[in-house]
């Protein structure tokens, strides 16, 4: 997304505009939930973390540098929320742990940035292309199997898959430059 789109979306989000909240959720909600689930390993905690991330983002939205890109900004908030909840849960589980425990990071915190980048890139794809990526990568189907599953010609699956991967490659290269 262009910087001006980011800025505009964040401003509308800061005003609590429902369409902006939904758009932000469409773009980043799954990535936030996925990050929290990776760190916390529990779906209901991940839901809590996702809600808390949106709440914190909303509270900070009108105070943040307007040029700061949305994705990395939300990632920072989501990561922080997940770490805080992880520590809270850890403390509840080990009542005897002393204050030094606060420095402990969840072991699953590594690679959350890479997973975040892939998930947000996938979520920007049109639904039919996302579906092809899911069928071939996650379910491991061949193009022929995917075609049978979707009831469409193999040629369509191939061209859709190529288009989806081209789009992903472009997006991931851009994200890489943005975070370099």
């Amino acid at each position: 997304m262009a910087a001006s789109d980011d800025r505009h979306l964040r401003e509308s989000f800061a005003r609590g505009q429902e369409s902006a909240i939904r758009r932000l959720y469409d773009l980043y909600g799954r990535a936030i939930f996925g990050l929290a689930l990776r760190v916390l390993g529990d779906r209901s905690l991940a839901e809590e973390a996702t809600q808390l991330t949106f709440l914190k983002a909303w509270q900070a939205a009108d105070r943040v540098d307007p040029n700061r890109p949305l994705g990395p900004w939300l990632y920072t908030i989501a990561r922080r929320v997940a770490i805080d909840l992880y520590r809270r849960e850890r403390r509840h589980a080990h009542e005897d742990v002393d204050g030094r425990d606060i420095a402990v990071l969840p072991p699953t915190i590594e690679h959350t940035w890479e997973a975040w980048r892939v998930r947000t890139a996938v979520d920007e794809l049109p639904a039919v292309e996302r579906e092809i990526i899911e069928l071939t990568h996650f379910l491991g189907l061949t193009h022929e199997e995917a075609a049978a599953r979707l009831g469409i010609p193999v040629g369509t699956v191939k061209s859709r898959s190529h288009r989806a991967h081209r789009r992903l490659a472009l997006r991931l290269a851009r994200l890489r430059e943005a975070s370099a």
Partner: peptide
């Protein structure tokens, strides 16, 4: 990235009503 695409954790979906709950909360 290709290995992440094959990772089941990447494809976990939040509950379908989570967005509505967030909209309500912020509203």
């Amino acid at each position: 990235f290709s290995t992440y695409l094959a990772d089941a954790a990447l494809w976990e979906e939040p509950p379908p009503d989570l967005c509505d709950r967030i909209v309500c909360m912020l509203d």
